[in-house]
Design a protein around this nucleic acid. Sequence first.
DNA 1: AAGAAAGGTTAACTTATCTAACTATTCTAT
DNA 2: ATAGAATAGTTAGATAAGTTAACCTTTCTT
Lengths: 144, 144
Amino acid sequence: MTLIEKFWESVPTAWFRTRARIRHTAAEQFGLTVEQFQVLRRIRHGIDSVSAIAADKNASRPAVSAAVDGLVTRGLVARQTDEQDRRHIHLTLTTPAGQTALSAIYEQTDAWLAQRLTTLTPVEQEQLQTGLELLKKIMEISEQ
Amino acid sequence: MTLIEKFWESVPTAWFRTRARIRHTAAEQFGLTVEQFQVLRRIRHGIDSVSAIAADKNASRPAVSAAVDGLVTRGLVARQTDEQDRRHIHLTLTTPAGQTALSAIYEQTDAWLAQRLTTLTPVEQEQLQTGLELLKKIMEISEQ
DNA sequence: AAGAAAGGTTAACTTATCTAACTATTCTAT
DNA sequence: ATAGAATAGTTAGATAAGTTAACCTTTCTT
């Protein structure tokens, strides 16, 4: 069993299961799409423009723009034009109400993940963390 | 930085980049969708029914059924009713021509992955492998 | 001041998916 | 034996996810 095969067995599956869980909480309970949730996560992390989010998540700008539209419509995010450079539009989380909903989604999704992670021993958790760091590292290499 | 955050930073990104690469090779060069490629991979691994593939990839049966349709239309896969239990339909890879195309897609996608993996030291590769095994393990836990 | 570059949106289209409902076949338990 | 449950798969109808191409604005470059 090669490393490549391990990759195929683990990474896509991990994402599909996670996405299904996000759909379960974010979508059913809060009316957000998985896309919107992913964008929200990034805005919360300070990635605050459509272009930056698109680059970070390997998606097209229009796809991110559409997700932002939905978030703005739901009152969770606000667009603010940068007065220094009027091409930029900063995205920010808005109302306390919106933040509360967001926290609830986080809690539920992260609890689902945490529940799985705690089945591992502390040593295994460290090994997983190391593995994920390496996974992130090799995926940051740009196309030649 | 918690393990959960590491997960969010690595797994979705890894999948999105990989999917973009599949699209680049499988889609542009061979007229296959990413979905069809994923189904093909599983058939090649001996997962040979719509239900089994759907379970393995956490997708609905209709979604898999639709992908199989496309593969059958392209002459890459054949449906064969099981005579012992006529509810089952076995999926098999067909013609040498189809197999050749499949091998080409594999080679290109795996080469892309391999190129990234070889930037890691042998020790790091082992650490990544351990991490991916743990990732797979925690994702196999069924919902309560 | 012209042209390139960057940020964002719109439009049109394709792919990816889901749930619900249906057909056909087989299993189960009386 | 047979009614009802369960399993495998497909169809139908919907929505979500995501692309490329083209366009507007604003800023940078020279």
